[in-house]
């Protein structure tokens, strides 16, 4: 079962977030808890961890801002 990665809402006022950098290459295997990308919000940059183990499929380019809820990747 694949797990979708979308831009999270981590603060009450958050409406969008920047996908600053992928920390894992497209197609690489990740373990649950490994940092997989850097999320930039108005307040800070934060490493987001893999919610599960599996293969990372990137679905959005780094260096851009996306709205909360936009699909940026999957773990399959």
């Amino acid at each position: 079962m694949s797990i979708e990665l979308t831009i999270p809402r981590l603060e009450m006022a958050m409406t969008e977030g920047g996908l600053a950098q992928w920390l894992v290459e497209d197609g690489a295997t990740v373990n649950e808890g490994d940092p997989i990308y850097v999320l930039e919000t108005e307040k800070a940059a934060q490493e987001i961890s893999a919610p599960a183990s599996g293969q990372l499929v990137q679905k959005a380019a780094a260096g851009q801002i996306y709205a909360v809820g936009v699909l940026i990747g999957e773990i399959i």
Binding site: I3, E4, L5, T6, I7, P8, R9, L10, E11, M12, E32, I48, S49, P51, A52, V68, G69
Partner: peptide
């Protein structure tokens, strides 16, 4: 909860 929020599966504070 942290995994769900981080992956965008959950939306709550």
């Amino acid at each position: 909860i942290q995994a769900g929020l981080g992956s965008g599966k959950f939306y709550f504070t």
